[in-house]
Nucleic acid binder design. Structure first.
Length: 275
DNA sequence: CAGAGATTTCCTGATT
DNA sequence: GAATCAGGAAATCTCT
């Protein structure tokens, strides 16, 4: 096995948010739903619209519910607005998941106000840069473990959210379907959704159409490899995985343009506003 | 342990 | 010629 040591230039490999340990390991143990310490501002009131969506995605992940079942467009708002929603607003916006979301945000608000003993968690109060990917770097086994999650209720899908899928052969136990945490396309999406944390790795070509372009292909591959604990990841291999997404319509082919991809109908959470 | 899903690895050939 | 793109095929990993 001759792994050519990346012909990549150094300039490609220095994402501002962490050349070595790019991802602050922040699996956390806050109370209740907030199993991960939210990497963003602890005050949801300060979240941007993107962070609100990330939170949505996160909560869905925690409850094993496909995020595509939540109408993200109903949450086209920043943290301040989100925090002002009533319980009923959440129910209206997210159906049966509304209660769970309400519970989660209430808890986060509460935690933010009370400054929960984050100190006892191994998190540095002030990270230089918040991890751009909320669920990044799940050390296998250390992360959210549904089986031991203290408060995770068995979210029972109700008629109001007909599409809630996931396997519920065992109604009392939530299960992850996502074997390795974040999927590649989600990883890519999250880089794009965090422009302030994206040191020129990938860039939107057409934001509304979901067209984006890799600027530092090998750097992204290295980052992906780091996340997967695979130091031999290359753009060549990453792109093969990307091509598999065409068939699943998570990505659409963009002909003739190198390093350019486009999100497909099955990719969720990338739109600025899905109105 | 088997099976499934999602890559990962390798490879050949075509394009840019 | 190098970097990409296209896919097929098989291997690997993790989870159910």
């Amino acid at each position: 096995m001759s792994i050519t040591p990346m012909t990549t230039s150094d300039s490609q490999l220095t994402p501002t948010w962490g050349p070595n340990n790019s991802y602050p390991e922040v699996p956390l143990v806050m109370s209740g739903y907030t199993t991960y310490l939210w990497p963003h501002d602890s005050q949801p009131q300060c979240w941007s619209k993107y962070q609100v969506w990330e939170w949505l995605q996160q909560v869905m992940d925690m409850h094993q519910i496909d995020a595509s079942n939540i109408p993200f467009q109903n949450f086209d708002m920043d943290g301040h607005q989100l925090c002002s929603l009533s319980y009923q607003d959440f129910i209206r916006a997210a159906g049966s998941m509304g209660a769970t979301l309400f519970h989660s945000i209430t808890e986060l608000k509460w935690n933010g106000q009370c400054r929960v003993d984050i100190g006892q968690l191994e998190l540095k109060p002030e990270l230089d840069f918040p991890c751009p990917f909320p669920d990044v770097s799940y050390p296998p086994g250390e992360i959210f473990n549904p089986a031991t999650h203290p408060l995770a209720p068995a979210v029972s899908p109700t008629p109001s959210s007909p599409d809630i899928k996931r396997s519920y052969s065992r109604p009392h136990q939530v299960k992850r379907h996502n074997p390795r945490g974040t999927h590649l396309w989600e990883f890519i999406r999250d880089i794009l959704l965090n422009p302030e944390r994206n040191p020129g790795l990938i860039k939107w070509e057409d934001r509304t159409e979901g067209v984006f372009r890799f600027l530092k292909s090998e750097a992204v591959a290295q980052l992906w490899g780091k996340k997967k604990n695979n130091s031999s990841m290359t753009y060549e291999k990453l792109s093969r995985a990307m091509r598999y997404y065409y068939k699943r319509e998570i990505l659409e082919r963009v002909d003739g343009r190198r390093l350019v991809y486009k999100f497909g109908r099955n990719a969720r959470g990338w739109r600025e506003s899905e109105k």
